[in-house]
């Protein structure tokens, strides 16, 4: 089996930092089956002036979610985007995520996401019974889908609430005010995963509506479109959570029934 002749490919990468920057072009040799991350690495090694091009990566197998960037304008994992998906002479343009502050070149400061996670009360089961906790596979199928999340934050990047309107949930929520921002799709499914857990005992629904801004999502589904783990973020995570909010805050019938039934059995997160 003969290998095809060495081909060249041009990488158009945004180079710069918080004070500004511009696109630079690097043309390097490529091999069969390469992904965009390989192209970045090839440029770092072989192209003049690209040796210090900042780019996060770890596993190079779509499992860690480090190499998130915008490739030809689309939020993607560089390690899972094959050069073969583009026309042979097409320039590959890479940019840092738009939604987060730029550190340098292709890296952004995603610490806001880690702050959101801290706001969400952790899993709190009842004390372990004699023997083991029991849950059926059918009880965990839903939440296992959300736990596939690799925290690449591509959904956060593409969510227009965060990306274009910059309504990122602030560190503190002023009392009595409507929610000041949104925690984003990644943490909607984090909350969904906890809320749908058969063993959990914390009620996060009031927080979700009042502080984490579930109402900001207008379900335009871009988060689901970009998810490299193919998690059905909108249909299986966000919308069910929105419906749970409706049960508690908008639907007079379910609100009445809940009141008659003594309200949520879970402890409300303060």
């Amino acid at each position: 089996m003969s290998e095809p002749a060495k081909r060249k490919r041009t990488l158009r990468a945004w180079r710069g930092d918080a004070s500004g920057g511009k696109f630079e072009e690097y043309t390097v040799e490529v091999d069969q089956g390469m992904v965009v991350l390989d192209l970045v690495h090839r440029a770092q090694r072989d192209a003049e002036g690209a040796g210090d091009m900042a780019c996060r990566w770890n596993c190079k197998a779509g499992k860690c979610g480090s190499c998130s960037m915008e490739i030809n304008g689309k939020p993607k994992l560089a390690c899972m985007t094959r050069l073969g998906d583009y026309a042979p002479d097409e320039v590959i343009q890479v940019q840092p995520l738009k939604t987060f502050p730029i550190i340098r070149d292709l890296t952004t400061d995603v610490s806001w996401n880690y702050e959101q996670n801290k706001k969400i009360a952790p899993f709190t089961p009842p004390p372990r019974p004699e023997g083991d906790y029991r849950m059926k596979q059918k009880d965990v199928d839903r939440i296992q889908e959300f736990r596939k999340c690799i925290e690449c934050f591509l959904c956060q990047d593409t969510c227009h609430v965060l990306r274009d309107h910059d309504k990122k949930a602030p560190a503190t929520q002023p009392a009595g005010k409507p929610p000041q921002g949104f925690i984003g799709p990644r943490f909607m499914i984090r909350v969904a995963q906890l809320d749908m857990h058969p063993l959990d005992t914390v009620d996060r629904i009031p927080k979700l509506k009042e502080e984490w801004g579930s109402g900001y999502c207008n379900i335009t589904k871009c988060c689901t479109e970009v998810c490299p783990e193919h998690i059905n973020i909108t249909d299986n995570g966000i919308i069910p959570m929105k419906e749970r909010v409706v049960d508690r805050f908008y639907d007079p019938i379910t609100m009445l029934l809940s009141k008659l039934g003594g309200g949520s059995k879970r402890t409300v997160q303060k």
């Binding site: 899993f123 083991d132 029991r134 596979q137 009880d139 965990v140 296992q144 857990h197």
Partner: peptide, 20 residues
């Protein structure tokens, strides 16, 4: 492993609902 489940890990299940 059991402790991990208590902290929120969601392992695949056996038919009787334990960690597979």
């Amino acid at each position: 492993i059991r402790e991990l489940e208590e902290w929120g890990a969601v392992f695949d299940r056996t038919a009787d609902g334990r960690i597979n």
